[in-house]
Design a protein around this nucleic acid. Sequence first.
DNA 1: GCAAGGTC
Length: 615
Amino acid sequence: MKILCVAEKPSIAKEVSRILSGGNFRTRNSKNKYIKNYDFKFNFPRKGSCDVTMTSVVGHLTGVDFPPAYKWGNCIAGKLFDAEIVEKVMKQDVFDNIVNEARNSGQLMIWTDCDREGEYIGYEIFKAASKGNNRLAIENIWRSRFSHLERSHIIQAAANPVTLDLKAINAVSCRIELDLRVGASFTRLLTDALKNKSVIDAKDVASYGTCQFPTLGFVVDRYKRVKSFTPEKFWHIQVELAKDGVKTNFNWTKGHFFDRLYVMNLYQECLKHKDGKIIKLEQKRRSNYRPLPLTTVELQKDCSMFFKMSAKAALEAAEKLYNRGFLSYPRTETDTFPATFDFKGTIERQTSDSRWGEYASRLLTNGIENARSGNKNDEAHPPIHPVNYVNINTLTSADEKKVYEYVVRRFLACCSKDAIGQQTSATLLWGDETFTSSGLMVTEKNYLEIYTYKKWESSKQLPKFIQGEVLPITGGIIKEGKTTAPNYMTETELIALMDANGIGTDATIAEHIDKIINRGYVVKEKKKGEIIVPSPLGMGLIEGFDGMDFDNISLSKPFLRKRLETSLQQIVDGTTTKDEVLAELKGLYKQAFSVSNRNINQLVNYCKTVISENS
DNA sequence: GCAAGGTC
């Protein structure tokens, strides 16, 4: 019996082949330069000794589009909500390889990632394989379930296949259809209308996407909050006292008030007392936690914050390092290491480095701390970690140097002890009011020694107060402050917002940000750090849509996309169906489209006004 | 010329 195994990407095909064959496999090339076919023997408990060919695709095999009758210009944009959709092969050479290899195979086994998209890619592989071999039936397809590449886990997965999950496949096909219909119809509507009035160049496209616009919406929303902010004054009491020649400031436990007179009255009462009394002294042990295992989103947030690197550049650098075997797979949502993870071996490979090698050695001698466990798991990939050692001086790209060093330091930090400090705090009673002051002493830096990006330092120490002691107040004043505007959006914050609202995935968040930059909807600006602000066009589009009278929905906010995500999960869980979700969400977007279509001139004129006001 | 999702 011959069994054809197909993974989602070349690296998995190679590694699984190596494990199942015990290293004894033959490699054949395919027409695609990334894809190899591996032949070996393996004993499947259900079939006995089999000839296996293991190969892979490179992500999705097929894409969707409208038939020629619905080409841009051939029909009105609104028609696209109910137009026929055709599937097209995007990578013919990859597709052909599956067709060929399936011809004389008695069994197909899918080894794609254990997530929703992986299930759908499995279905695409099945369809390609059936082209070459019509004896393959979907209900007989083996689907392996594996979440990492540890040997015994892979052997287990090979022995215990399940069937393809049609519910997950339907969920993805629902997403694909909705994104295409909504994206294409709104993009054509916007582009044609804006071009018609010369708001955008003839060569430009004004795209709408279910992820692009909520992303743009976040940026516009923040920008408007900054611009419309009016500071408000507030008042509070601050006290200073001196002991042993050391002056210490105490802060009011009541915080601050916006009513000056009220604060004034309390202050007047305080002033009747010359002395204050230390009524409480406390010593607390403080921990500063080592970081969680690294996900893609965290990597991008940190690289943006620490190195001013765009999310896209960070992911690209990590991908290059992965392709040369230096880092593990860089697209992961998992922040927990598998129980079998080889921490010792991974740390040992870093001991020769001149920057962090000594620390790595010390960890090995003094004991590796168990990494913390987060609560995210994509069931497909482990957290990002260094695989093989590379001296960063030999890397040519500055981004790659930074990303590799960061991943190593982050990993070593994960295996280190938390930082420990002692916090001393004192409470002072002055008249009827209480005030506090505290000092921090970092006693053990631990992970902070290696994770140099983060600062947690000792503050000024408190003098040795004594419980109950009465000390003269050397300064008690009313201080005026004012509320400050929120800051402009940083890329780090934008990534966090998208992640929290389910806009995009670990693999696509960076692309969405990049896209709205390339469309000219937002720009990056240097202003004490890098910020992202909307362009007049981006402002105009969001405010234009927000000004329309939709029925309880918004085209610029993340709610609809989030609702889709929730519905997709319900399809997977079996509590609803693809048809129901499509009917509901397509209906909502279709309504919004017809309102937009009616008011498109208003939107265009509005964009025009905003642009001319800002030029 | 349109989307978002995989991956190289």
